[in-house]
Design a protein around this nucleic acid. Structure first.
Lengths: 194, 194
DNA sequence: GTCTATACGAAGATAGAC
DNA sequence: GTCTATCTTCGTATAGAC
C-alpha cells in the first residue's frame, strides 16, 4: 500500500464521482475516467476487480461522505445552520459548473434500475440519503422537535434539495433551489421555536 | 397520415418514455425502443429525423403532458386535492413497478448535461417542471395565497416529490414519499387557511 | 504487479434495396 | 415510403507482454 497506489486509486474514485454528477452513471465510461486520471485502462480493473459497479459504488460513498462531513460539522451550530450549509453546498456545485453538475447520488438512484444490475452502487446511494437525513433529524430532535416530526422534516429537506438541484439544471437557473431554500428555512425555524 | 402511422409513432414515444423513466435516458437505446414497439429500426428515423434527441424530447413532453392533465383536473377541487393527486400518481408509479420506474423528466434533467448535447429534451424537461409548478401556484393563489409565496410553495412541492421518488427507488421503500407527503400536506393546508 | 493490445458486443446513424 | 443490412464508434472486460 504505497502512497502512489492510493493516490491513483483515489483519483479514479474522485474522477468517477465528478463524471457521474455531470453526465450520470451510464454516460460515465471506465475508459474516460482512466484517461482523466492519467492511468491506463487496465489499472482500473486492478484497483477495482468488480469493474464499473465497484467503482461507481465507491464514487457514491466518496461523494456522500464529503457531503455528510460538511453538514454534520455545521449542524453543531444548529438545524438552521446545517440546512444553510446543505443548501449552500449544492448551490455552489451548480453555479460553479454552469449548471452542468448535480448530485451523483441522485444520478445513481435513477439509473441503477434493479438491485441485480448495480447492487453496490444503489445500496451506497440509499445509505447516503439515510445518513444525510439521520444527521438532520438528530439535530432537530436535539432542538426540541419530536422524533417522528424530525424524521419527516429531515426527509423533506433531503428530497426537496435533491429535486431542486435537478430542476435548476434543467431550467439553467438557481431559482428552484433558492425558492426551496426560503420555504425550508421558514419551516425549520418554525419547527424548532415552538 | 394514416391511423397506423400515428399509432406506431405514438407507441415509439410511449415506449421511450417508459424506458427512460425506468433506466434513464442513456440506457434507453433506439434499437430496443423500436423492438418493443414492434417497428423496424429504420422506421424510428423516418418518424424522428432528429434521432434520439427528438424521440427523447417527445417522450418527455408526452409524459409531462399526462401528469399535467391529471393535476390540472384535480386542482379544480382545491390545492390539497391537487397535491394529493400528484403524490398518489407517483406513489402508484413506484409501487406498481416494484420501485423500478421513476420520473422521466427528472432522468432527462440529470443526464442531458449541456444545452448542446440534448437541447430539445432538456428544454422539454424544464418546461415540464415549469408547467407543473405553474398549475399548483395558480391554484394556491386562487385560494388566497400571495403570489410570491404561492410560487415558492409550488416549487417546493415539485422539487420535494421528484426527490422523494428517487429516494424511494434507492431505498426500495415508499417511506420517503409518504413522509414528504405528510409534511407537504400540512404545509399547504396551513398556507390556504390563514 | 503494470500496462498494452485486443476481443466482443452494442450503440447511433445511414445507405440503398424493395 | 418501409425496412434490411451495414458503417463507424465506443462500451466493458480481459489476455498476455513486460
Amino acid at each position: 500500500m504505497t502512497g502512489t497506489d492510493q493516490s491513483s486509486r483515489q483519483q479514479l474514485v474522485a474522477g468517477a464521482a465528478d463524471m457521474i454528477r455531470r453526465r450520470g452513471l451510464n454516460a460515465t465510461s471506465i475508459r474516460e475516467v482512466a484517461k482523466h486520471a492519467g492511468t491506463p485502462l487496465g489499472s482500473t480493473y486492478h484497483y477495482f476487480p468488480g469493474g464499473k459497479h465497484q467503482l461507481a459504488a465507491e464514487a457514491v460513498r466518496y461523494a456522500a461522505g464529503t457531503v455528510a462531513s460538511i453538514i454534520a460539522a455545521k449542524l453543531r451550530a444548529g438545524p438552521v445552520e446545517g440546512l444553510q450549509a446543505f443548501l449552500t453546498l449544492w448551490r455552489t456545485v451548480i453555479t460553479s459548473t454552469d449548471f452542468q453538475a448535480g448530485c451523483p447520488v441522485l444520478a445513481v438512484s435513477i439509473e441503477s434500475v434493479s438491485i441485480e444490475e448495480s447492487p453496490a452502487a444503489l445500496t451506497a446511494a440509499a445509505e447516503a440519503f439515510t445518513t444525510w437525513s439521520a444527521h438532520l433529524a438528530e439535530s432537530l430532535r436535539e432542538h426540541g422537535v419530536a422524533a417522528t416530526r424530525a424524521a419527516h422534516l429531515a426527509t423533506l429537506i433531503v428530497a426537496a434539495v435533491e429535486g431542486a438541484v435537478a430542476m435548476c439544471r434543467a431550467q439553467r437557473s438557481t431559482d428552484p433551489l433558492d425558492q426551496t431554500a426560503t420555504e425550508l428555512t421558514a419551516l425549520v425555524q418554525a419547527a424548532i421555536s415552538r
